[in-house]
Amino acid sequence: MKGFLMSLEKYIIATLFLLMAITIDAQKTTSVSIKAQATVIDKAEIELVTIKYLDIDAGMAVNGIINVSAKRDGQAGVMMVKGRPDANFRISFAPVVEIPNSAGKGSLSLKYEMFGYSSDNQGASEPIDAAARTLKINSDGKYYFWLGGLIDISKARPGKYEGEFTLEIEYI
């Protein structure tokens, strides 16, 4: 019994030392604070509306090349920005997108062409490159984009190709 108690005493002493040591060590914890953040924009402040989708048909190909002019063709996609009147904004987008074949293997590379203007006048629109560029919403709170593209289907596998175009907009 005495031996057991001595043994128990050793455990108790060891326990006390351990807890003390852990307490000391805990004080050596190194910490740093990382900021997590996001800015939310009111929906009413800016909105991107797709008026017409970019329609590409293999029958439009000439020598294996489909070319939809954003400035001249009726097949061009049309988008409109609705936002604060007279506000400056900039856009960015990926100028080249791989479009997967949803019915089989392979993909196609589509090079986008973007034109924009402050009113609904495709013929007067101006080219916009992918690099962020400052644009201005008109006094009615609108700005228009036309989307065309160049795509080579001469070596494409048979199938159905579907893609999407993402345009990012921010106020300046």
């Binding site: 060590d25 914890t29 740093v32 604070s33 997590a36 953040q37 996001a38 800015t39 939310v40 924009i41």
Partner: peptide, 27 residues
């Protein structure tokens, strides 16, 4: 550090949302 934010509540006010992620390291 990464993760998911949202969904932003439909009635959320516009503005700068933030918080601190504390990282503790010890032996």
């Amino acid at each position: 550090l990464y993760g998911t934010l949202g969904a932003v509540p439909t009635n959320a006010a516009a503005g700068f949302y933030s918080g601190n992620i504390n990282v503790h390291v010890s032996y």
